[in-house]
Simulated scan of single mutants.
Amino acid sequence: MEVDIRLAAERLRQEEATRGAAQLVTPGDTVTGDGGFMRGHGTYKDGENLVASVAGFVRRINRLISVQPLKARYNGEIGDVVIGRVIEVQQKRWKVDTCSRLHSLLMLSSVNLPGGEQRRKTQEDELAMRSYLEEGDLISAEVQNIFSDGSLSLHTRSLKYGKLSQGVVVAVPSNLVLRRKNHFHDLPCGATVILGNNGYIWICATVVGEDGGAGTGGYVQNLERVPLPEREVISRLRNCILALAGSWMMLYDTSILYAFEASSKFQARDLLKPEVMAEAADLCVYCVSCPVCVCDALSRPEVCAARLLQARDLLKPEVMAEVADLTRKRLDLEAAE
């Protein structure tokens, strides 16, 4: 078994990691000296100057200026899709960790019974709560309400929500998940991605057929061993998401799919050598800028001198940064068209 021993990689400079991003400020920095702007979140007035109170990116909406923090706890909004883990079973409710300031609550009256049955919950249902959800279970849910103390009330009344299994969860900063109408995506690579607004992203193999647990609230689960090709796709998607998050790029279905395609233009074991990795990265920059390679790199390998990259290579900081850079360039090309 080969072992790759390397020195600690030099941390990327902040300027390189945030290329193309908004203005970055730290607490105490003057955002603007124009008194005509309104103060938003993360700022305060110091005379005529607007000063940042947190470290983050400056966001301007007309005359409103706010600072979006780099890392912060999730502040839920009604209608958000979240991924959480059950940490406690209480009387008529479950306590769920959703990466917010306080634990969220999932009431027994806010869940679907097995089979999607809609009826009033009885004492027998309360006694059988652990057969529905128990400590350690991962669930997908929607924010139904926000209590006065800031805690969230969840519900899983739709059968697309419920218990999750046979996949992997990835934790990223919640402000990197782009708010969109749909957060459930079946990617053409054969994987399903649930982008939680709270920063938890679920990746699993796409379920085909009505007997595999899709649309059943998680009560019908296929616990057979996941085939190796599907596990490789899941691991590659996980590493691509971490690469995009490491470069502070917004996460949504298009950016993740582009990162997945960009990662496929690298080699396998040869890329464990730094010089080969650098050469393949240069070839991939050419492929992304070439319209032929952008369209046909997967179906016509001969047009791309770089081959396939193993998913584990995407854990290397320099490869993660290169994949994120390729994704950013492709998104810019698409926006220019």
Rank of each mutant, 00 (worst) to 15 (best):
D29S: 04
Y200S: 10
E318T: 12
R101Y: 10
S66D: 12
W202T: 03
L237F: 02
L333W: 03
L228Q: 12
I65M: 03
P173T: 07
N222E: 05
R236Y: 05
Y74W: 04
L272R: 11
Q118E: 13
L138K: 08
N239V: 01
T43F: 00
E279I: 15
C293Y: 05
Y132G: 03
G56I: 00
Q23H: 09
R238D: 02
L187M: 13
L113T: 00
Q91M: 10
N75G: 10
D325N: 14
C204L: 07
E124H: 08
R238K: 13
V168M: 12
D80N: 13
W94K: 01
A171P: 03
K160Q: 06
G215L: 11
T30G: 00
T156D: 03
G209Q: 08
V319R: 02
R93F: 11
E88G: 06
K265P: 01
V285Q: 15
K95R: 13
P27M: 04
V303S: 03
M320Q: 13
R330Y: 05
K95I: 09
R312I: 13
A324P: 00
N197W: 13
S66L: 06
E232R: 14
A52I: 04
T30H: 06
G40V: 00
C99E: 11
K316C: 12
M38P: 04
D296S: 15
V143R: 01
L152E: 10
V226H: 01
I78P: 03
V67C: 04
D211K: 12
D282S: 11
K92D: 11
R330S: 01
D34P: 04
K45W: 11
L106K: 03
E334H: 12
L283W: 15
A311S: 11
V319I: 14
K160S: 09
K163R: 09
A336W: 04
I139P: 00
E77S: 14
L271E: 13
R85S: 10
D34R: 08
R130T: 13
R236W: 05
S264T: 15
D313P: 02
A22S: 11
A128N: 09
Q310R: 12
A297F: 02
E134G: 14
N222W: 05
C295K: 07
E2I: 10
G28H: 07
V51R: 06
E16K: 09
A191Q: 05
F260A: 06
